[in-house]
Amino acid sequence: MGILADAFGEGSILIKDSVEDRSSAISLVGDLLVASGKATSTYVASMLEAVEIFGPYIVIAPGIALAHGKPSDAVLETGLSLLILEQSIEFQHSQNDPVRLVFGLAATDHESHLELMAELAEFLSAQENVSSLLRCSDSEQVLSLLG
């Protein structure tokens, strides 16, 4: 498996019909990071706080959000989680709403996940990849897409 697929631990990918709001989405991808052993619940609080303090800057492209918190001891290992929503939700971003792909990112510091981010950016830059992700119906499909 490549760097990108490797970053997703066991139980870190979820496809859901809908969630209530952006906080629910962020909590959920945070919980997926905890479930897959990348972080503790303290980190999930940090992920929510980030958006409360700085606004929805985490919606990095149309329909795609990258929820993340502050690197700290609450992060056990660098990793990713993913929530694919059938029904989009609003993050209140000025340009990139509504969102259907919510990634969770746990990183131990500001530098060591550079390669992972580069792979993620490369992957998401291609519209076909984004469209294919949205069509996945289970986590296996997602992992084979990520390569």
Binding site: A50, F54, I60, H68, L105, A107
Partner: peptide, 15 residues
């Protein structure tokens, strides 16, 4: 620069 220093800041750095 981004809020937490690991997300958008890193993407901006790479690009």
């Amino acid at each position: 620069v981004c809020g937490m220093g690991i997300g958008t800041s890193v993407l901006l750095k790479i690009n």
